[in-house]
Design a protein around this nucleic acid. Sequence first.
DNA 1: GCTTTGACTCTCG
DNA 2: TCGAGAGCCAAAG
Length: 109
Amino acid sequence: MKITNFQKRVYELCKKVPKGKVTTYKAISKKMGVKAYRAVGMALNKNPYGILNYRGKNMVPCHRVINSNGFVGQFAHGPKTKIKLLQSEGIFVNKNKMINLKKYLFDFK
DNA sequence: GCTTTGACTCTCG
DNA sequence: TCGAGAGCCAAAG
């Protein structure tokens, strides 16, 4: 599996997000110095460390990346799966697929 | 190599 | 406050 530089950067940033916290596509792209919000999502969609490898050691916690408005957004294995994972880490997701960004957002620094 | 697509975000009415 | 439209950039076709 070939991984582009762009994807690699996205993955590295994702891995910095601690358990119980989330980040946004916006934050990631901003940190990378571009505005390719959508490209970031794409990179994660094709992510080689997908949900099936989540129990593994070196996975990218892609479920911790959500929309900037607090909505959970999409997920390769369906939003349900994403929500489930988030909740399993102690993040409350209401039925509108929204979370408390203020409380859970992890800010890269 | 040009066109389309997408796990998004911003702006405007 | 809310919906529609435009803009963004990398990957895939």
